[in-house]
């Protein structure tokens, strides 16, 4: 497919979280608030793009037998570097995301895209694929956390990760007594994820169904 289709595919058709079911553990655990979702999503996008580009750059000289260890070294170094930078410049976000930043190393999306795409395509294509997939991941995290934060706290808050200032706070205080606290835990995460996955499956199958109908 061409570059544009590939890029858009990362959002719905090949959405890593709802379509390919990759990177679920961090997606479910992080998406408690919008802040966390944005922060994590941007981290993953950054690392994914960078790793895709680097791996694509060395793809011609990497021996086939050790490609996996090489990819992992690259990804792990990137994650460690990003982690240190976050700890220095975005301490609040770093504290919120905690151990999940380190877990990006084993996030299936990164290794999966490296193996499936970056090792076989040019740097620019890989970069776009990385950005597309990363944004798709961020998009899905935003969806989940939008629902979860609202149901669990009856408000939405976005803060600037650099200086901890609240950029946006929408609080529906009249809905406070109706909070469902289960959605701030993993149970709610699974339920929300399941609903969205079902929705995306419907969306994915719509064009196929349409084609079937027209073919009849």
């Amino acid at each position: 497919m061409n570059r544009k289709e590939n890029f858009i595919a990362g959002f719905v058709k090949e959405n890593p979280v709802f379509g390919l079911y990759l990177g679920l553990c961090s997606a479910l655990a992080i998406s408690t608030t919008l802040d966390n979702a944005i922060g994590m999503g941007l981290c993953v996008t950054l690392i994914l793009t960078a790793s895709n580009m680097i791996i694509s750059a060395i793809r011609k000289i990497t021996p086939d037998e050790i490609r996996i260890p090489v990819y992992i070294v690259v990804i792990a170094s990137l994650v460690s570097a990003v982690e240190m930078l976050m700890a220095a410049f975005m301490p609040q976000l770093y504290a919120n995301l905690g151990v999940f930043i380190s877990l990006i190393v084993v996030n299936c999306i990164i290794l999966g895209r490296a193996e499936a795409f970056a090792s076989k395509n040019g740097i620019l294509d890989s970069a776009l694929d990385g950005i597309g997939m990363g944004l798709g991941y961020t998009f899905s995290l935003l969806l989940i956390s939008f629902v979860r934060e609202f149901l669990a706290t009856a408000s939405w808050t976005i803060t600037n990760p650099f200086n901890n200032q609240v950029i946006l706070h929408v609080g529906l205080s009249f809905l406070e007594p109706f909070k469902i606290s289960m959605f701030s835990t993993s149970t709610g995460a699974f339920l929300t994820f399941a609903c969205f996955a079902a929705l995306f499956a419907v969306l994915k199958n719509k064009p196929a169904k349409k084609e079937k109908k027209e073919a009849k």
């Binding site: 000289i61 990497t62 021996p63 037998e65 050790i66 260890p69 090489v70 070294v73 690259v74 792990a76 170094s77 460690s80 570097a81 240190m84 930078l85 700890a87 220095a88 410049f89 301490p91």
Partner: peptide, 28 residues
């Protein structure tokens, strides 16, 4: 060839990481 390649990649990563560390450790 494989070993050398892997070692080179490892060394490069270590170099980059130590640079970033020097940069950020005092701030942290």
């Amino acid at each position: 060839h494989l070993t050398v390649f892997l070692a080179v990649v490892g060394a490069l990563s270590a170099g980059v990481l130590s640079y970033v560390n020097d940069l950020t450790a005092p701030i942290i």
